[in-house]
Simulated scan of single mutants.
Amino acid sequence: MYDIYSNAREDSWRFTLGKCGKRKLLTIGLNPSTATKEKSDPTVARVQKVALNNGFDGFVMLNLYPVRATDYRTLPSKVDEEAFSENIQKIEDLIRSEKDPVIWAAWGESITYHSFFRRALTEIISRLTLLDVSWVRFGEMTASGHPRHPSRLAYSWSFSPLDMEGYAHSLRP
């Protein structure tokens, strides 16, 4: 089903999932749920449909944290540093390999739940500062100022630029 897939720890960590294309939409969510190389889940299905409806012929689903959980609140409060580091490196490597990367910020309000989600975003931004990356959001920001998660979208919405520097500054305690 998907020709882009990387995982570890007997698939309890998922780093990348997607379909090849000349113009891929790189999407960063919160953490992976149930989608695998062989089957989709509701979030990945929405990401793929949004990509195709908006001029992308491929997509890659990435996440701020690679540990699987159907509910982010059930993740351990203490970060697994090995999972965290490997995930950030894979995100950086993938984005560096893309020509004119477009990154859809798609983590929703829940980025505030675990401090390691915000830490991951800060690290990703830091590693990408010298690259020409286009950050986008789909639809309006949430009432509290976060880019919406794919499970909370309407297909009639469109992409808009996201001031990632300003957004990241708003996340600082």
Results as ranks from 00 to 15, higher is better:
20 C>V: 07
101 P>K: 05
71 D>C: 00
95 I>R: 12
105 A>P: 02
131 L>R: 06
100 D>R: 13
137 R>S: 11
117 F>R: 01
57 D>Y: 02
105 A>W: 02
100 D>I: 02
57 D>P: 04
146 H>L: 02
119 R>D: 15
16 T>E: 15
82 E>R: 11
71 D>F: 03
22 K>L: 13
34 T>Y: 00
67 V>A: 15
36 T>V: 10
78 K>R: 12
115 S>A: 13
111 I>E: 01
120 A>C: 10
22 K>M: 11
21 G>I: 01
71 D>M: 03
102 V>D: 08
16 T>C: 10
28 I>T: 00
40 S>L: 09
118 R>E: 14
112 T>W: 01
67 V>L: 15
70 T>I: 07
104 W>E: 02
71 D>Q: 11
142 T>F: 00
119 R>I: 00
97 S>C: 11
14 R>H: 06
62 L>F: 13
126 S>W: 03
90 K>D: 05
113 Y>R: 12
64 L>E: 10
81 E>M: 12
110 S>K: 10
19 K>Q: 14
18 G>R: 06
68 R>C: 08
46 R>F: 04
132 D>H: 07
74 T>S: 15
41 D>C: 12
25 L>A: 04
51 A>F: 05
19 K>H: 09
89 Q>Y: 03
128 L>W: 07
85 S>M: 04
88 I>M: 12
74 T>F: 07
122 T>H: 09
100 D>N: 15
26 L>S: 11
134 S>Q: 15
145 G>F: 07
91 I>Q: 14
20 C>W: 05
104 W>G: 00
116 F>L: 10
43 T>R: 08
84 F>K: 12
74 T>R: 14
72 Y>E: 10
140 E>I: 02
127 R>D: 05
116 F>S: 09
91 I>E: 14
146 H>Y: 12
107 W>E: 02
95 I>P: 14
136 V>R: 06
123 E>N: 13
134 S>D: 08
90 K>L: 13
44 V>Y: 07
13 W>C: 06
119 R>G: 01
36 T>D: 14
60 V>N: 06
21 G>P: 04
105 A>S: 14
75 L>Y: 04
104 W>C: 03
111 I>W: 01
55 G>K: 04
113 Y>K: 12
28 I>V: 15
139 G>K: 08
133 V>Q: 10
53 N>D: 15
132 D>L: 07
31 N>Y: 00
19 K>S: 14
127 R>A: 10
61 M>R: 03
128 L>S: 04
145 G>C: 02
69 A>I: 00
89 Q>P: 01
36 T>S: 15
40 S>W: 04
128 L>D: 11
33 S>R: 02
